Amino acid sequence: MVSRQRPEEPAEAAARLTGRTVARGGRSGTLSALAMTDGDTLMVKHAPGAAAAEAAGLRWLAKAGAVAVPRVHGADADWLVIDVVETASPTVAAAEAFGRGLAALHNAGAPSFGAPPPDGPVDARIGLAPMRNVRRDSWPQWYAEHRVLPYVRAAVDSGVLTASEATALEQACARFPETAEAPARLHGDLWNGNVLWGEHGAVLIDPAAHGGHRETDLAMLHLFGSPHLDRIVAAYDEAAPLADGYRERIPMHQLFPLLVHTVLFGRSYAAQALAAARSVG
């Protein structure tokens, strides 16, 4: 009989990665909140193959000192141990502070478009989908080759997009405009669920961090909504004025998350992706 190794439990992973003792804790899906004997409560996330990239992203975002993120207490390829975020109701003041902080985060910059966080892997993830961090100097080329077309091909291969629809998306890629924007330090998966509102303002979780165009983070906030979004964007624009035509470019930047959702969740997002493609150029 072949013996099978028992899967590691969250408390065991937390103790191994932090060197601290767990007093008690419960489990909910991939997340476990554990009380430590020193009085802290830590969150343990089981993310096989993705935890190291998330940890590197959190550390890179934290280094900017612009928007709060949970502190990383330990991580390996499969497990991540971070602070628990105590949530509160979002206020207008918190939203405006988030807008200014997001502008500062983006302004912290990245070495190039597609640059991963320091010590972060080239092969990362956005949600449950693979995301490859390949460096390029040209934003239109990089955005087409590494943020749009891989998901078009995956959607065609799975039968979610037709060949003619793929052609329409490929043609949109040829119309992506050049930009004078420097590579920004992006959260990379900035939908409403990854912006928690704590006692002291916004806290960002679950990044797919990389160097990119700053409007892409903002476009994802527009796509899935956010409390006081108008105040977030207004405060951002006051701190770091957006280039003319920003609102007209939002659908172009939404192509990336829309195609990721098409691959992950099916045909319901394909029509939105095609509508966004038609708006380009």
Results as ranks from 00 to 15, higher is better:
V2T: 13
S3D: 14
S3Q: 08
R4K: 13
Q5W: 11
E8P: 01
E9A: 11
P10M: 04
P10V: 01
A11C: 07
A11P: 02
E12V: 10
R16A: 09
L17C: 07
L17S: 12
R20F: 02
R20M: 05
G26S: 14
R27P: 01
A35H: 11
M36V: 10
D38F: 05
L42E: 00
A47E: 09
A47S: 13
P48D: 13
R59T: 08
A62P: 04
A62I: 02
V67I: 06
V69L: 11
V69Q: 07
P70N: 06
L80G: 08
I82L: 10
E86V: 06
A88G: 10
S89K: 14
P90E: 09
T91A: 04
A95H: 01
E96A: 15
A97N: 15
A97K: 13
N107H: 13
A110Y: 00
G114K: 02
P116D: 09
P117R: 02
P117Y: 00
P118S: 15
D119C: 12
D123Y: 14
R125L: 06
I126Y: 06
L128M: 12
A129H: 09
M131A: 14
N133A: 01
W139I: 12
W139A: 11
V148I: 15
L149T: 08
L149Y: 10
P150N: 05
Y151I: 00
L161C: 02
E165L: 11
E165I: 05
L169I: 12
E170Y: 06
A172M: 13
R175Q: 03
F176E: 04
A180N: 02
A180V: 15
E181H: 11
E181D: 10
A182M: 15
R185H: 15
H187D: 05
H187K: 06
N192H: 14
N194K: 04
V195M: 05
L196W: 02
W197Y: 11
G198P: 11
A202W: 07
D206Y: 00
D206T: 00
P207F: 14
A208Y: 03
A208G: 09
A209I: 02
H210Q: 13
T216D: 14
T216K: 05
T216R: 03
A219K: 10
L221E: 01
L223E: 06
F224V: 03
S226Q: 13
H228G: 03
H228A: 03
A235Y: 07
D237M: 01
A239D: 01
A243P: 10
Y246V: 08
E248G: 05
M252L: 14
H253W: 09
F256P: 12
F256A: 11
L258F: 05
L259P: 00
H261R: 09
V263G: 09
V263C: 15
L264M: 07
F265M: 12
G266Q: 12
G266L: 12
R267F: 11
S268D: 12
S268R: 14
A270P: 01
A271M: 15
A271P: 07
Q272T: 09
A273F: 15
L274H: 13
L274K: 06
A276R: 08
S279R: 15
G281E: 10
